[in-house]
Simulated assay, not measured.
Amino acid sequence: MPQRILRDWTDSEPVDNLSFQAEVLLTRLIMKADDFGSYHANPKLLNAFCFPLKNIRETDITRWLQELASSGLIVLYDAENKPFLNILNFNQRLRSMKRCFPQIPENVIIENCQQVAGKSRASCQPEVEVEVEVEEEGKRTIPPLNFKKITKEEFHLELKNYVEEFGKDIVTKFFNYWSEKDTKGKMKFQKQDTWETKLRLITWKNNEGKWNK
């Protein structure tokens, strides 16, 4: 199991606006989530797995979950007739990523970014970032840099995380298009006002279906 190290989020407004209890739950969810940021959202299971040594009411956990969702830090969804959650913009970089919970539906991601308190898509990117230490390799990988400063190699490395989810062909075409540089050496994706790689990949995949008709 990878060891996750929480970065400093003391100056994060979305996290700072949380109640103390909701922030504790968020911290424990980061420890428990799979490599894609997904985990159980059943209050009974969260009580057992996230607070094994505490006596927490399930109604309180339900309230904290809703608080995290309303703050745009997680998305709640159903899969296989069970409730799950996904920590938005989890941004882990692992050479081998394992999915332990059902994938969050694409429409849920898009709808969440459109609904959270009337905010723009850019504000749907939570300010929670995670460093990941891979025990078997003894190395620590760092989350993506600001997309305006990221190198072509770092962009390529980030996209490798989505090959399993979107397929090698789509990811390769996506990379070739968005990594094209202008005369000043700036890549095409760096000219955008905002950038969320997964949301862009979802749009690309949907559009490719239309292009191929």
Rank of each mutant, 00 (worst) to 15 (best):
S96E: 09
S96R: 09
M97L: 15
M97Q: 13
K98W: 04
K98Q: 14
K98A: 10
K98P: 00
R99A: 14
C100Y: 11
C100Q: 14
P105R: 00
P105M: 02
E106V: 10
E106Q: 06
V108M: 04
I109W: 03
I109Y: 02
I109G: 01
I109H: 01
I110F: 04
I110Y: 03
E111K: 06
E111N: 09
N112I: 00
N112P: 05
N112D: 13
N112T: 13
C113N: 11
Q114P: 02
V116G: 01
V116Y: 00
S120P: 05
R121Y: 12
S123D: 14
S123Y: 08
C124E: 01
Q125S: 07
Q125V: 07
Q125D: 01
P126L: 02
P126G: 00
P126V: 00
P126Q: 02
P126I: 01
E127M: 04
E127Y: 07
V128L: 11
V128H: 04
E129H: 08
E131N: 09
E131M: 10
E131F: 05
V132A: 05
E133I: 05
V134W: 04
V134Q: 05
E135G: 04
E136K: 00
E136R: 01
E136V: 05
E136P: 00
E137L: 06
E137S: 06
G138D: 03
G138Q: 06
K139C: 05
K139N: 09
T141N: 11
T141Y: 15
I142M: 13
I142W: 10
N146D: 11
N146C: 08
F147C: 03
K148S: 08
K148M: 06
T151W: 02
K152D: 14
E153F: 03
E154P: 12
L157G: 09
L159Y: 06
L159K: 06
K160R: 11
N161R: 13
N161D: 10
Y162K: 10
V163K: 15
V163M: 10
G167I: 11
G167H: 06
K168Y: 10
K168P: 02
D169A: 12
